[in-house]
Design a protein around this nucleic acid. Structure first.
Lengths: 159, 159
DNA sequence: TCTCCCTCGGCACACCGACACGCATCTTGA
DNA sequence: TCAAGATGCGTGTCGGTGTGCCGAGGGAGA
């Protein structure tokens, strides 16, 4: 299934304002609400839209510190990976975890209130992860780009 | 302003389903739609909720490859940072960019269709960034955790 | 301890808008 | 040229949303 530029316009609008009504979206995209409703439903049914979610301002919750954590395991055996991953999903401060190629086995993105709070997280969450050989943390000083969707998605018009 | 557990329940519901109506949310959280509407509006006005956005399934768009790119600049002068950042925000395949402490100056998260596509991105987007001394890429083999909000947020009940 | 006040929650109602249908028209592709 | 899918308009029904009012609970002050 190919998406035309109207579909992409709908998706772009919905990524910016997921609560917009059919009428509202229709006027923005430039079509009738009937056609828009049909296309939106098709986009949902075909799985292009996974969910509609509220974006919280994490700074309001005091989570102003982003830390990138590089982790190397003692062994890359399947059992060690499984044991590590089963525990890392339970860490409440971890928002992302990638299994990586290269020297580092995993890269985590951790959100903390401040540096002292990260020390606590390091002690109560990270240091308890199994099979870890080495942990290396880098602090993000500033977030230059933060997009949910790469702009390249909205640029590929097919029709 | 302190949030009680009902506020957190509302936020948790909205991060899972942002299009839920007042009536729907009210029954889930266990209160009347009137009270819920008041609280939801307060959460929006106080900035806890930044936006409502549709989450796209990027795999449906063929973006299955995540790459972490470490970039070191030739110099850390204010002018070099500004020049680099002004260009990196224009890269359509970059979804995140952090200014980092430590040896690497910037860390980017790039989405690509596959490895060949990343080669193209490297050539057309990354290698054109100004003042870059060194670029080092690591491929994510798998995404173990991907949360928009750390679960720790919904755990801190105040009242 | 009593009382006052303030805040929050719940109920009822009315209004407004969204949503889903049917049908005619148009465009696209073969 | 024809057929099939997409579009747009109109309409009716349904549901959500917002408001006003009342009651309950808790805190403060006398």
């Amino acid at each position: 299934m190919a998406l035309d530029r109207k579909d992409l316009a709908i998706l772009a609008e919905l990524t910016a304002n997921a609560r917009a009504s059919h009428t509202e979206l229709a006027s923005k995209v430039g079509m009738s609400s009937t056609a828009l409703a049909r296309r939106q439903k098709a986009l949902e049914d075909d799985g292009y839209i996974q969910a509609y979610q509220a974006a919280l301002d994490l700074a309001q919750f005091g989570l102003t510190t982003t830390v990138l954590v590089r982790i190397a395991l003692e062994s890359q055996s399947d059992e060690a990976l499984k044991a590590f991953e089963a525990e890392v999903v339970k860490c409440p401060s971890v928002v992302r975890c990638f299994l990586m190629s290269g020297t580092d086995d995993y890269i985590l993105i951790v959100l903390a209130r401040d540096i002292q709070d990260f020390e606590r997280i390091h002690r109560t969450e990270l240091s308890r992860l199994p099979r870890v050989a080495r942990v290396q943390s880098s602090f993000a000083l500033r977030e230059v780009v933060n997009r949910a969707v790469p702009t390249v998605v909205f640029g590929e018009a097919k029709r």
